[in-house]
Amino acid sequence: MRHSRLFAGLADAEYRAIIAEIPVETRQLEPGQALIAEGEEVGKIWLITKGRLAAARKYSDGSLDRVLVFSKRDIIGLDLAYTRTRISPLEIYSLTESCVSGIAYNFTDDTAIPFGIREHLLKNIAHILADESIRKQTRLDALYQHSMRARINIFLDYKRRKLGGTVFDLKMDREELARHLGVNRSALSKELSRMQSEGLIRYQKRHFEILDEAALRDRQ
């Protein structure tokens, strides 16, 4: 928890002062176990300390559309905590054995936390939400494109800009990347290998190198 972006920039003593004031609920989850139900009013934000969770839309036949994956150090429900209704539009459940720590959704209102620290926390939250917003906007932009190449280009262009270089490692595996971009997994692999043979990119598993930056801006 100490390494969560929520507490970035705080001294150890400040972190301890916060944790001493606010109750933290720790939960262990089995694979498949739900953390937040669809339509539930979220009362806590959850920091992942171990494992992976997913946000999905559930159907009556038991099938799922997995729309988001959270991994270690991600925070679940942070955006919902600051909306008016705090209603979760999706079900959140565990993919693996996971461990999460829950903090009250309104913990930043706790006046027992010294003012300067509270303000620092608000800024950290704003940073996290802003980054998330850009990430989502990029994903939306990609999903609006019809061609797979255009979707990949938008995604790689975003990574290049965010990570400030043309060489980077992805956190997502192929399956997750395909889901992220809303495309078929084997079609994605084919398109990536086509891009490699065209000399646009080079990759091995999750390691990517963009060889032709300008081509990312070619209209498809």
Partner: peptide, 22 residues
């Protein structure tokens, strides 16, 4: 800052819904 945060949060949820649709 708190109000700005609420704006960002609303925006984030709105985008998630749109992603879900698309």
């Amino acid at each position: 800052t708190m109000n700005a945060l609420r704006l960002l949060a609303n925006e984030s949820v709105r985008k998630q819904v749109k992603i879900d649709v698309l």
